[in-house]
Design a binder for these strands. Structure first.
Lengths: 206, 206
DNA sequence: CCTACCGATCGGTAGG
DNA sequence: CCTACCGATCGGTAGG
């Protein structure tokens, strides 16, 4: 684990700002479509300066993905540890995940989703180690739902379909649109879950 | 509609081969990560020759997306026109869509999904016109399902979640894997649909 | 972190 | 469709 080494606080701040600029630009224009000069300008530096913080442009890409994944994982694991009914836990996982994809400034995970193919194969292996933990967490949540009959069919496919439905939001969600992120998270959970016979309860209630 | 103009058959063939090479390479390495020299070599030409068929590299990208969308639309509209129950029609639409995403040589639509941001805004408008028809077709299918209670919640969100679950397969599906594309299509339809009380029927049958 | 710079590569073109 | 080429831009570096 190459955390940023023992540097002065000022340098750490500068590095973080650089990384945010990378994340935003990579998401918007793609890794290959973003130049060092774009990044330098966005971070308020001259074109040679980013290389004081990162050895190569490829290193900036890995750093963005690693930071996004480990922050996301941290938040999700906090939710997963709560004592909640599976469906309620799922709902909260969905909300957190949508936050990491769509909330303002959260460009790190989308970069991972959309610029995966720009990683060298060595770096890909490094990121896969983190991604595996991400997948495993969701797989456990999915398995719990399946055990109580709230999700049908093959468990691994169910997780992949779920991921797809959620990750796709990064493509179409716009802040200030017809639905808030909270509403979208609720709808997504309802769409993905087989509710425990709510139709029958509703019928009885009338 | 700029179809390829009245050229000799040999030239049309050459152009088609070039487009297939573009689609495969753009999908694999991205538009910005693919060079004219990559494309030329894959098509068996020298580096200046693709420009005999296309004015710019950007034109190759639009042509790939346009061809993918209009071919996909053609297949989907054939299914949509069939007289079928909504759930069965949906199942078949899913299968066709997964084919355009995952079958061998079908790289055109994935390029549209993954290289959207490389389009100039003028070209984006051209492609959106086609994409709107694609979306409308799926929206009609979704609305029919919703009318009979097989899909819950907001109709537009239901379509977007469906698209996400399906489009994501282009990311993880590998030919020769644990499940065939037919099986995945069946599982996807089952996952996305609220079946008409199959659980109760199953219980009665025991 | 800036200045000044380099070699490589890129999309594209002229002329045949 | 090939040959030969060009101007621009790119990632990256040396030296301070």
């Amino acid at each position: 684990m190459k955390k940023s080494p023992g540097k002065r606080p000022h340098e750490r701040n500068r590095r973080e700002g650089l990384l945010r600029a990378c994340a935003r630009l990579f998401r918007e224009k793609g890794f290959d479509g973003t130049t060092i000069r774009d990044i330098s300008q966005a971070a308020g530096m001259r074109s040679g300066s980013p290389f004081y913080h990162f050895r190569t442009k490829q290193d900036m890409l890995v750093a963005v993905m690693e930071q996004g994944l480990s922050a996301g994982l941290h938040h999700l694991e906090a939710v997963a540890a709560l004592k909640l009914a599976p469906a309620e836990k799922f709902r909260q996982l969905v909300r957190v995940h949508l936050g990491t994809l769509c909330e303002d400034g959260h460009d790190f995970i989308p970069v991972m989703l959309y610029d995966w193919r720009s990683l060298t194969s060595a770096n890909r292996r490094r990121i896969i180690a983190l991604k595996d933990r991400y997948d495993a967490l969701w797989q456990r949540a999915t398995d719990e739902l399946q055990a109580q009959g709230s999700m049908p069919g093959d468990a691994q496919l169910a997780r992949l379909f779920t991921f797809g439905a959620l990750n796709w939001t990064a493509r179409w969600y716009r802040a200030g649109g017809r639905k808030s992120l909270d509403e979208i998270a609720d709808e997504a959970a309802r769409f993905l879950l087989r509710q425990q016979a709510p139709a029958r309860l509703a019928r009885v209630a009338r």
